[in-house]
Simulated scan of single mutants.
Amino acid sequence: MAIFLTENSRVIVQGMTGSEGMKHTARMLAAGTTVVGGVNPRKAGETVSVGSRDIPVFGTVADAVAATGADVSVLFVPPAHTKAAAIEAADAAIPLAVVITEGVPVHDTAEFRAYAEARGTRIIGPNCPGLISPGRSNAGIIPADITKAGRIGLVSKSGTLTYQLMHELRDIGFSTCVGIGGDPIVGTTHIDCLEAFENDPDTDAIVMIGEIGGDAEERAAAYIREHVSKPVVGYVAGFTAPEGKTMGHAGAIVSGSSGTAAAKKAALESVGVQIGQTPSETAQLMRRVLESALESQPV
């Protein structure tokens, strides 16, 4: 089992015919993802060859859903058009929309997130690498060949650190890895993923990666205290970040004592989450957690 994305997911790509859309559609197909169509109003009715596959292009998301039964859309759409594309996906009742685009205005994200939520569409992103259930499906830009299927769940603000932890724990493997994005407002949060992993019978432990800025990690700590029984290890990026300077992600900014890595680390450790000082140490902590769990099982 996996969360949000499985081998039965049927994926369309909004913006498939652009350079990034074509490149990553080919990679998703190579990873075994069932890509059933693309969306581009200017190329409706055409067929695009991607690798050895011919993929139909539809004029609207609604047309693509009606023709293919798609239940996931991956958005490679310029920032100025992202809000309209996400709203179109929600209007078509797509259950999961993965917004890869960076640089989306925060007020646009706030608007389409609320619109989608009211219509039952889960948004992942924006400014994210997407998600992968290794060996089953890949929706986004996460490299599929750096890990294997296993029983660890991973949720991360950082795409790069998603890849690093996947690689560091590649011999153990993952149920699903979700890159939620690092903007101030995102569609799917740490808490959403923690809840899903807690309820997934094929996830035994969780890696949670946060970073400076905002209070998402503190809120996740409060949720873990009340609702998560599975072991969680974590990493918080940004211990050496200077105050008042945005670091990489639009949401990664420290203002005064708010949103510091030290405060987030303290909050998570107070509810039993083991925090690594580096990504590699975080991976080692997960190994120890899993080894301890195996040793405690009855013979």
Score class of each variant (00 low, 15 high):
residue 21 G to N: 07
residue 259 G to V: 01
residue 98 V to F: 14
residue 245 K to S: 14
residue 264 K to F: 00
residue 288 R to S: 14
residue 119 R to D: 01
residue 138 N to Y: 04
residue 124 I to D: 02
residue 146 I to A: 04
residue 37 G to T: 08
residue 249 H to M: 03
residue 291 E to K: 10
residue 46 E to V: 09
residue 270 S to H: 02
residue 151 R to Q: 14
residue 57 V to Q: 03
residue 293 A to H: 10
residue 185 I to L: 14
residue 92 A to W: 03
residue 92 A to H: 06
residue 35 V to H: 08
residue 111 E to M: 10
residue 5 L to I: 14
residue 274 Q to H: 11
residue 169 L to G: 00
residue 279 P to G: 09
residue 212 I to D: 02
residue 130 G to P: 10
residue 234 G to W: 00
residue 108 D to A: 09
residue 37 G to V: 12
residue 66 A to D: 14
residue 228 V to T: 09
residue 172 I to Y: 07
residue 296 S to K: 15
residue 144 A to I: 05
residue 258 S to Q: 15
residue 226 E to D: 15
residue 226 E to L: 09
residue 220 A to Q: 01
residue 75 L to N: 04
residue 209 I to T: 03
residue 64 A to Y: 02
residue 174 F to C: 05
residue 75 L to W: 01
residue 69 G to P: 07
residue 186 V to Q: 08
residue 124 I to V: 15
residue 296 S to F: 08
residue 115 Y to C: 07
residue 173 G to C: 00
residue 208 M to E: 03
residue 281 E to R: 03
residue 153 G to T: 11
residue 61 V to R: 05
residue 111 E to H: 06
residue 138 N to V: 07
residue 95 P to E: 11
residue 167 H to C: 06
residue 254 V to S: 05
residue 9 S to G: 15
residue 126 P to Q: 09
residue 239 F to W: 12
residue 169 L to F: 01
residue 14 Q to F: 07
residue 84 A to S: 14
residue 75 L to T: 05
residue 37 G to H: 10
residue 208 M to R: 02
residue 297 Q to I: 10
residue 143 P to W: 11
residue 164 Q to F: 04
residue 299 V to P: 11
residue 110 A to E: 12
residue 88 E to K: 14
residue 272 G to R: 00
residue 6 T to M: 11
residue 143 P to H: 07
residue 22 M to R: 14
residue 44 A to K: 09
residue 275 I to P: 00
residue 72 V to A: 08
residue 117 E to T: 10
residue 197 F to V: 13
residue 26 A to S: 10
residue 259 G to S: 07
residue 148 K to R: 12
residue 291 E to C: 10
residue 47 T to F: 06
residue 154 L to I: 12
residue 38 G to M: 05
residue 263 A to N: 13
residue 68 T to E: 09
residue 133 S to K: 02
residue 227 H to W: 05
residue 215 D to P: 02
residue 104 V to Q: 06
residue 71 D to W: 04
residue 137 S to C: 15
residue 133 S to C: 06
residue 16 M to L: 15
residue 136 R to N: 15
residue 116 A to S: 12
residue 16 M to R: 05
residue 167 H to M: 08
residue 19 S to L: 04
residue 15 G to M: 03
residue 117 E to Q: 10
